[in-house]
Every structure is written in C-alpha cells, then in structure tokens.
C-alpha cells in the first residue's frame, strides 16, 4: 500500500463518526478533569501560602485543616484514577480497539 493511500486511510478514519465520537468521549472526560484537579491542587497550594491562620486551625486533637486538606489531595488523586479507569474501560477501550482493528486491516491491504 502506497504512502498516499495510507494517508487516505488516516484521514478517512479521523473524519469518521466513530472516531469523532471516541475523541469527544475521551476529551470531554479527561480535559475537564485535568482542569478540575489542577484547580483543586493550586487552591491547596495558594491556601498554604496565603491563608495560614485559617489552614492552621486544629480540627481533631493535633490534626489541623492543613493536614486534612493534604490528605484530601491524596484521596482526590485516588478517586480520579478510579473514575478515569472506569470511564476508559466502559466507554473508550472497546471503541478504540474496534477502530484500531479496522485501520490495521485496511493498512494491510
């Protein structure tokens, strides 16, 4: 298969509704989530820098808001990992494999 025919396979696949749907499902999930976790992280860093008095308030015994917020960063990281894994295995993997097999078959012609 010549190079220009390969190019045609790539371009047609990219334009196909299946691929556009896959792309939308991936980006629609990963991009907002990235913005959300970065915002949440920088909120934590900014509070650490500029809201010292509040963040130092003890909650239970010697455990203060700063430590709890820090632990929540761990919790949110694990949660996002789990959410993304669930989303991928449910909505992305099968669709992506289907397109891959189709493209590989066409390229092998």
């Amino acid at each position: 298969m010549g190079s220009s025919e390969q190019d045609r396979v790539w371009a047609e696949t990219q334009a196909s509704p299946e691929f556009q749907d896959l792309k939308r499902k991936f980006r629609g999930f990963a991009f907002p989530l990235t913005i959300a976790f970065l915002a949440w992280y920088f909120l934590y860093v900014i509070l650490t820098a500029f809201a010292r008095a509040w963040i130092s308030t003890p909650v239970i015994g010697n455990i203060n808001i700063a430590l709890i917020l820090g632990l929540l960063q761990f919790a949110s990281t694990f949660l996002i990992m789990w959410l993304y894994e669930r989303h991928s295995s449910k909505n992305l993997d099968a669709a992506s494999e289907k397109i891959r097999d189709k493209v590989d078959k066409e390229l092998a012609k």
Binding site: S3, Q6, D7, W10, A11, T13, Q14, F19, L22, K23, F26, S96, E97, I99, R100, V103, D104, L107
Partner: peptide, 22 residues
C-alpha cells in the same frame, strides 16, 4: 494536517503500533 490525522488516529487507537511513520 495530514500527519496530524495519522498522529491523532494512532494516539487514540494504537493502530499501526510499533510501525514507524513514513
């Protein structure tokens, strides 16, 4: 645009995995 189509399809699906781009 042409190479981006290839990159996008490859990166999202793993088509032609391990085969170098031309």
């Amino acid at each position: 645009t042409q190479k981006y189509a290839e990159l996008e399809v490859r990166s999202m699906t793993g088509a032609a995995l391990g085969k170098a781009a031309v």
